[in-house]
Design a protein around this nucleic acid. Structure first.
Lengths: 196, 196
DNA sequence: TTCATTTCTTGTCCTAGTTCAATGTTTTAG
DNA sequence: CTAAAACATTGAACTAGGACAAGAAATGAA
């Protein structure tokens, strides 16, 4: 049962580097497994983020509250994604973000301590986390570029082609927030698209 | 003379981790020093990025051409910043970016090979590069947030307070592009701000 | 099954920012 | 020192998208 979950995460990390079975076993022994119901906060503004979470199943959003008091969605997370406030996690500094489950979730968690232990025992994992960061950076850069150069319609089309499963799983106004447009306008964009 | 430059970069990396003098000497021996005149391209679209550059002095911009053929500035680099297309550098994949010097530059360069060699000889440097990536990610996230939530005026004010030396060094339309607004509108924003 | 809450849609009016075009200013190359 | 580029400013006309309001649909808890 849980072995399936280990297999799932092992498959993912094995895309970054080649690990022996013993190494993977050590890796797995350091993971904390956790099930979390929907609408649970894994992190709130002001807290130090104590985890890097790997999503076995479920759906999560990361957001913060801007100066005007509006929620801004920073990231959605689904199966096989990592979720954390990396800066807060590494520096122990208070986070500006909220991390909330949108569906019941099955997660593997690292604490700062277990991550440290893993990296000391198997330095090859540095590579895994570096690649994660790089991918994260490149996703964020892409999003920034889309935000600067594309119309609301194009941003939405890009989103659904990039993440085809998400629109069925999360509220539309969360997607609007992620895209940086108003919920009402997204609705109008969709209406216009549907007419074709 | 060049020793000053080594001291400069050593001081920076020593903020990330503690290194012995021998380690720093090894580090320095792997750096390639290069002087580059202004308006030189370090990277063009389609090329594989062969360097991670540390800027001793000078100013650089990274940009790409969007679907409509317009330049979009992704990043400015000045003293003590690192510049590269990290994805392209690590994967050897063709870059979508241009990297151009805006002033005469003094640089230290890593190639994929020398970086690899450094990380093998002194694994502690993994940390330096990971922190670089994290900082980069957090800058990019911040910029995205500003882009989504702030008005043109606020974005500009945020920019000049965050990077007070850059406005005197680079063309205004490059800053407009970085902020994701038109050059004309930035000019109007500035005119309005000046009136107060 | 019902009532309440959350989510989605649609319309009207409004504004921040764009585009285009003309003019002025600064920088650069020879 | 001069001509040519590159850059910056200003104005007028236009538009993508926002804010607000009110109703419809879906979800969910009891």
């Amino acid at each position: 049962m849980t072995q399936d979950y280990f297999n799932q995460i092992n498959k993912q990390v094995s895309k970054c580097a080649i690990f022996t079975n013993e190494e993977l076993a050590t890796f797995n022994s350091l993971l904390e497994y956790k099930e979390v119901p929907k609408k649970t906060y894994l992190l709130r503004e002001g807290e130090a983020c104590q985890f890097e979470a790997y999503i076995i199943s479920g759906c999560i959003r990361t957001y913060f509250i801007d100066e005007n008091g509006a929620e801004v969605v920073l990231q959605f997370g689904i199966e096989d994604w990592w979720v954390s406030d990396i800066a807060s996690f590494h520096e122990g500094s208070p986070s500006k973000m909220f991390i909330e489950t949108l569906e019941d979730c099955k997660l593997f968690l690292f604490s700062p301590q277990t991550k440290e232990e893993l990296l000391i025992k198997i330095p090859k994992f540095e590579r895994v986390f570096r690649l994660m960061l790089q991918r994260n950076l490149s996703v964020t850069q892409n999003r920034l570029i889309n935000n600067i150069t594309k119309s609301a319609t194009d941003k939405y089309l890009d989103f659904i082609s990039r993440y085809p499963t998400i629109p069925q799983r999360v509220a539309q106004h969360h997607i609007a927030s992620y895209l940086g447009i108003s919920a009402e306008f997204l609705s109008k964009v969709r209406a216009k698209l549907a007419k074709k």
